[in-house]
Amino acid sequence: MSAPGIILNNISLAFAQQTLFNNLSCEFTGGQFTCLLGPSGVGKSSLLHLIADLYTHKSIQYSGTIRATDNQPIQTRIAYMAQTDSLLPWLNTEQNCLLGSRLRGEITSVKKIQARELLKRVGLKNPKQKIAELSGGMRQRVALVRTLLEDKPIVLMDEPFAALDVITRLNLHDLAAELLQHKTVILVTHDPLEALRLGHVIYVLAGMPAQLGAPIIPAGTIPRAITAPTILQLQGELLARLQLAQELM
């Protein structure tokens, strides 16, 4: 089964004080990495929250429709990864990876084997290790494995690597590109390089209320090498766009 695309139709979202989106429409292609860039507060995370159906607050005014290209429900097919790793300190590495199964009461030995194999693939050899003993990069790897074990076709990532140092971040890009292949990934990021390495399509979210700019579609397969000429060239263009977007805030 191929991963579905996501269609946003006439999305309007307003908090008490400000309007974030007004009749925003777009389509995110299935089976690809879509990267969303934009200034802080423009509504990148809000967009992910809307897709994941995480808003329950009454002070929010929301209208519009979000649907999958195959017209099946979206919310049951989502895995979500945030900037904070949200690892639970009372569970060990493996137990944290299996949190979804644990919550749904469906931990199986097959799932456990899967968890251990994935942990090994991201370079974590001790599944029983305590969370407090892990470095920032290791923690985010555990969070990545937890996201993968949900085994969902749609993956929403909200600045998952923002808190990491550059080298760790580059390594995790490679892992993410490999392990999330053929899934519909929407990756919110602050980092133009991250977007250029991982995005099949890149959008800049700008304005108040926010609109998506024209898509940037870099050539080549992901993860693109940091030395690729396209990356260097597009990085300048992307930064210029982000500067412009910042001025619109």
Partner: peptide, 26 residues
Amino acid sequence: PLAWLDLAKTMRANRWAILWHIRIPA
């Protein structure tokens, strides 16, 4: 932490599972 509750929600956990596995230990 709200992030933990959001995560659990995207994992389709019911409120009792969230209580038992997340809110009580936290």
